[in-house]
Design a protein around this nucleic acid. Structure first.
Length: 363
DNA sequence: AAAGCGGGGGG
DNA sequence: CCCCCAGCTTT
């Protein structure tokens, strides 16, 4: 009778993933970048962003000497931009205070901005072989099913319980050199077998001990997060065109699309032409109408009304109230900048009506 | 159309 | 502390 860890290690060697771009390295920097990108984001999405990021920023020193704007530009489309800002902050911190050497040790790693307990553990395991437990969304799902945990795994007491289990189940002394394989096995099992929908229980290495499978509760576990209904909001995004260029504003560092370049936002209640006169001192006239674009966040739904406008006249010194940074940029260049996904979509629709262009083609 | 995913920050 | 926030993909 082999243990939990032994089964997973054996399964990983036969069926796990072993050639992802961030595997087969012990470079803590490369592992760090991958783990940050993999927060909230699936492998297939991350791969092209990761390759591009490491090509431009091959080490901590290069990130630290690059601008936040450039980091965010490479992050554009990946979402959760505070991850990019924190990565940049942390790189500068490490460059300045640690001579560019990524720290060792779970607790130290966890003190870096953007790195919590699970991410720190993953880095400590993959880069240094430390005996640490991870607990990401995949692992929570695997555990909730395997142990038949009824409650919502995000609830405090359940999460504490899961962390305790995660630590108990770490490999025994004789297999501690396999901690990386074991950790990868947990991730891969959640990603390829113990999936949210249609899990492949028949080929699962844990099928003999899985409580959810035994009790036919696999599709009920893990318990879903308690929901509250989404508020809906509407806003206007102005597409001010002048000499083939569009006006972008840099958003404040915090809040929605923090630090990204965005089309100027205007309340739906205002009159467009009056707003442009008052806010920018511009004379404008409407261009071809564009249909509204719906964008969903976790906590609200946003209906965006794009408003393309031709600038007829504008003041010599464009000074926008409460906005320290604005720029005129061609839509082509804007697509290479740090812009949120809906703005990217609008600019692409504007530049290439009809055809949709996927992120992979641009990368 | 709805659900899921780690960590930071504010109340 | 606990609760809210963030943006994209998958189902």
């Amino acid at each position: 009778m082999s243990t939990f860890a032994t089964k997973l290690i054996h399964w990983q060697k036969l069926h796990g993933r072993n050639s992802l771009p961030w595997q087969n390295t012990r470079d803590p920097y490369a592992i760090w970048v991958s783990e940050i990108m993999l927060q909230q984001t699936q492998v297939a999405t991350v791969v092209p962003y990761y390759l591009r990021f490491l090509h431009r920023f091959p080490d901590i020193e290069s990130v630290a000497s690059g601008s936040e704007d450039e980091v965010l530009a490479l992050w554009s489309g990946l979402g959760y931009y505070s991850r990019g800002r924190n990565l940049h902050r942390a790189a500068r911190l490490i460059a300045r205070e640690q001579g560019g050497i990524f720290p060792r040790g779970l607790e130290i790693i966890q003190q870096l901005p953007g790195i919590g307990r699970s991410t720190a553990a993953a880095i400590a395991v993959f880069a240094y072989g430390e005996q640490c437990a991870i607990l990401d969304g995949n692992v929570k799902r695997v555990f909730a099913r395997c142990f038949g945990m009824d409650g919502y795994p995000g609830e405090r007491k359940n999460e504490m319980l899961l962390w305790r289990k995660a630590e108990e189940l770490l490999p025994e002394k004789n297999e501690q050199d396999q901690i990386g394989i074991y950790t990868q096995a947990l991730m891969d099992l959640g990603a390829t077998i113990c999936t949210r929908a249609k899990p492949q229980c028949m080929t699962c290495p844990l099928r003999q001990e899985c409580i959810a499978l035994r009790d036919d509760h696999v599709n009920r576990l893990p318990a879903p997060r308690p929901r509250r209904l989404l508020p809906e909001k509407e806003t206007v995004l102005l597409m001010l065109m002048r000499q083939g260029k569009v006006l972008l504003e840099k958003r404040p560092a915090t809040g929605i699309w923090g630090g990204l370049w965005c089309l100027p936002e205007m309340p739906l209640s205002e009159d467009t032409l009056a707003y442009c006169t008052r806010h920018f001192g511009m004379n404008v006239e409407p261009l071809a109408h564009m249909p509204p674009l719906d964008h969903t966040f976790t906590h609200f739904r946003l209906r965006i009304h794009p408003q393309p406008l031709q600038v007829i006249s504008y003041p010599a010194a464009l000074k926008v109230q409460g906005q320290d940074e604005t720029m005129w940029i061609t839509p082509d260049d804007a697509l290479k900048a740090a812009i949120p996904a809906p703005v990217r979509k609008l600019l692409m629709q504007y530049g290439y009506p009809q055809s949709g262009q996927s992120i992979e083609k641009q990368l």
